[in-house]
Design a protein around this nucleic acid. Structure first.
Length: 771
DNA sequence: TTCCCCACCCATTGG
DNA sequence: GGGTGGGGAA
């Protein structure tokens, strides 16, 4: 048994304070690397081993399953023993747990399904069809986002139409009504519902709430800056009795407002709980002073911000390396070169290196480069395992077996493998089911019931096919009560013909079957008595995994990850790529100051993931949806104090990264930060892009075209007779590939351009939004 | 009824 | 560049 001394030996004064304040509300404002996970783990250990609180009386809520697992493990290793019963979960998984226990009170069958985004979209599409509305005019995505907004404001379907101010909102309200009905028929909930319905359950059933209030004497919430209104309300309800609520967060790392996260939860915490004790952890044990200075330089540009200065006793460390690459391929190559150098010369471990980016699409160039250069990598997200067709199909069979009302699952597999139930037949089944307010499988199982009229609606062959499917599902449902998840999976794959379908796929069959076996492997973790309960657990697990959960710490590989998913992680070396206007900050965020500030926080999150080395690259041009665009370096680069920066010039097709120490020293730098236009000029004049120069037209030449107007040459390839040039035109004409002579392209001498200055691509024509 | 091909539309971030 | 959905042929 660990003693009290041991628990405290590795904590700072502030950290101890946070651990020991166990009675009453506690707000921990924790900067990046200030040891908040350590504090939470110690706090749990302190509660259970020193204060004698039973582990099952502690509820800790984290942002991801991975964080939950890690927190539990750390707390357990501190007390050196059993913490069983300790609840460490995500909000979603906690709510699912509550709803399985007590959802009956609000009419939810414990075997309910959890609809994912894809299920939701299909459902909305079918509703639009039902209501005779054009999905092009009313994008299912937009409608779902409207429904989600309503749910997060706790507006139920019966009230929304009264609040709608436009025809579109009226449509959203109408779809919402039907959507709610159909989810109920399917005995299903969506992600928002998990939170919302648990909340409703607590509010409407005091005796249920009290049960949980009594049980949890201590409630801890991690990443509190990214919780939404419902989540905070849930936490408040749960803690209302004992008032022992401890929240940990950092307003500078709030990056999920688009998912309804509300920073006011954090900033207003003290007014909700006036007797709050606040502890600020501002010492970083993670990053070098230079990295902290660079990150602070960026984040202080946010106007909406509570001032907080991080400090560290760590070394100054190396400067932040900033550089421009020609395009995304070169960017990837340079990153890998530098990674190899770090590993070979500076003894860095590949496991401790990550490449971070704003959008998932950016991983492609990195992956290609890794494959070409034989660098092993772990991609977080990627072609997400649970979104692969064979996985979704297999899971759909199991979902339908557990919850026969699950129409989304049924629609997915009713004719997979093809068994003679055509889309027309499915339409007929759906229509009957919806008219009768029942599920589609229910209709199918009653195919011989004349009253339903299914037999009439279908032709003879289809009726036989439907009957065969009904037999299959009946058998599977029967077996699901007695078989384990794995055995049921095997039976399902065999009897449904899905196994044969996959294995007959000559091109990808083996790979797809391997994926199914992997799913089978994770199902084997859910064995035990009451197989049906275990199966439901397994399916819930499948529905609630996040990409980050599968990140392995012990794989000898570099990590490729989005900035959002990198939250909470740390690496010795971090490479942030795509540091360009339009990507970071993302073009979709430029309309509002609040959104742009969130992009800056995202940049801050990325930078503060680094312990020792931080690299930030931007590209001169980048591929985008098949075409290419000239890119401007991100404004955030210019916000880094010069004294922290080392710029590099990258030579195309060369194997070395030449370091250029800025001539402007720390003292001379004044308030100016990194000036990207300098490096661009340097790169162009130093021949960084020389291989692209051909014929009369050279990269960076100003040109004029009879129809497209003035532009600048981005690429020039000699094709023998003529020169094929890629030109970035102003006036929203974007990028064009032209045969120089044939198209009548003319060079324009500097200064002779007739067009205004703003058309100079070097100044600002980022082409991300060009038509 | 199924399968294949082409056109079109699209991707910010994610539980 | 890729996924999906619709339309046409077998």
């Amino acid at each position: 048994m660990t003693t009290r001394i041991d628990i405290f030996s590795e904590l700072s004064g502030r950290q101890k304070e946070a651990v020991q304040h166990t009675e009453g509300p506690l707000l921990i404002v924790a900067g990046p690397g200030s040891g908040k996970t350590r504090v939470m783990a110690h706090r749990i250990a302190y509660l259970t081993s020193v204060e004698g609180v039973a582990p099952w009386r502690v509820l800790a809520v984290t942002f991801t399953n991975k964080a939950a697992r890690e927190l539990r493990e750390r707390a357990e290793s501190l007390v050196g023993g059993d913490n069983s019963g300790l609840q460490v979960r995500t909000f979603h998984s906690f709510c699912a747990y509550v709803l399985r226990q007590d959802g009956g009170q609000i009419g939810l069958d414990p075997a309910f399904s959890i609809y994912d985004g894809d299920d939701q979209q299909r459902l909305v599409r079918s509703i639009l069809e039902e209501l005779d509305l054009d999905p092009k005019q009313f994008a299912p995505r937009a409608i779902l986002s409207g429904i989600s907004d309503a749910k997060n404001k706790m507006i139920d379907d019966s009230r929304l139409s009264k609040l709608s101010k436009s025809y579109f909102e009226e449509v959203v309200a109408r779809v919402y009504v039907r959507y709610t009905e159909l989810l109920a028929t399917a005995n299903a909930v969506d992600f928002d519902d998990l939170l919302l319905r648990a909340h409703t359950l607590f509010e409407n059933n005091p005796e249920v709430l009290e049960k949980y209030q009594d049980r949890y004497r201590h409630v801890l919430v991690d990443e509190f800056q990214d919780t939404n209104a419902i989540q905070f309300s849930l936490a408040r309800l749960l803690a209302a009795k004992h008032k022992n609520i401890c929240v940990v967060g950092d307003p500078d790392q709030s990056i999920y407002s688009w998912r309804h996260a509300d920073i006011r939860n954090l900033t207003d915490f003290q007014s909700v709980y006036p007797d709050t004790k606040t502890v600020t952890l501002d010492q970083s044990y993670r990053s070098t002073q230079t990295i902290l200075d660079a990150a602070s330089g960026v984040i202080t540009h946010n106007d909406e911000r509570l001032k907080k200065d991080l400090w560290t006793e760590n070394n100054r460390g190396a400067p932040v390396t900033v550089g421009e690459a020609y395009d995304e391929d070169e960017e990837a190559r340079v990153v890998l070169q530098e990674i190899n150098r770090l590993v070979d010369e500076d003894d860095f471990d590949r496991r401790e290196i990550a490449v971070m980016y704003r959008t998932n699409a950016q991983s492609r160039a990195m992956e290609a480069a890794c494959n070409r250069h034989g660098v092993t990598y772990q991609l977080v997200g990627g072609t997400k395992f649970y979104e692969r067709k064979e996985i979704r199909d297999t899971v759909a069979y199991l979902r339908l077996t557990v919850n026969p009302s699950d129409d989304a699952a049924l629609e997915r597999i009713v004719n997979v493998p093809a068994r003679g139930i055509s889309p027309r037949s499915v339409d007929a089944i759906r229509t009957i089911a919806r008219t009768r307010g029942t599920s589609m499988l229910n209709v199918i199982l009653q195919v011989d019931d004349e009253e339903l009229g299914l037999e009439e609606a279908l032709n003879k062959r289809a009726v036989n096919s439907v009957r065969a499917f009904a037999d299959l599902m009946e058998r599977l449902i029967e077996q699901s009560i007695i078989l384990s998840a794995v055995d049921l999976l095997d039976l399902t794959l065999e009897r449904s013909g899905y196994k044969r379908l996959v294995q007959e796929d000559k091109e990808r069959g083996e790979e797809r079957w391997d994926n199914i076996l992997e799913l089978r492997g994770s199902a084997s973790n859910f064995e035990g008595p009451e197989p049906r309960e275990r199966l439901i657990e397994f399916l819930e697990n499948v529905a609630l995994v996040s990409d980050i959960d599968s990140l392995e710490d012990d794989e000898d590989a570099i990590t490729l990850i989005t900035l959002h998913q990198a939250k909470g992680l740390e690496y010795d070396a971090v490479f942030m790529i795509g540091m360009e206007e339009g990507l970071l900050p993302h073009s979709r965020s430029l309309e509002s100051v609040a959104d742009t500030e969130e992009e800056r926080r995202l940049c801050y999150v990325g930078m503060t993931r680094a312990r020792k080395r931080l690299y930030m690259f931007h590209a001169f041009q980048r591929g985008f949806r098949g075409s290419r665009g000239a890119m401007m370096p991100s404004r955030f680069l210019g916000e880094i104090p010069l004294a922290c920066v080392e710029t590099v010039s990258i030579r195309r097709n060369s194997r070395t990264v030449r370091k250029v120490t800025p001539a402007r020293g720390a003292a001379a730098g004044g308030s100016r930060g990194y000036d990207p236009t300098d490096i661009k000029r340097q790169a162009v004049t130093s021949g960084a892009v020389r291989t692209a120069q051909r014929g009369d037209f050279r990269v960076a030449d100003r040109v004029s075209h009879p129809t497209f107007g003035d532009g600048i040459v981005i690429e020039a390839v000699d094709t023998g007779g003529d020169t094929e040039v890629t030109v970035a035109f102003g006036n929203g004409n974007g990028l064009k590939k032209l045969m120089a002579e044939f198209s009548g392209l003319k060079k324009v001498e500097p200064g002779k351009s007739t067009k205004a200055k703003h058309e100079d691509p070097e100044l600002g024509d980022a082409f991300l939004d060009a038509p």
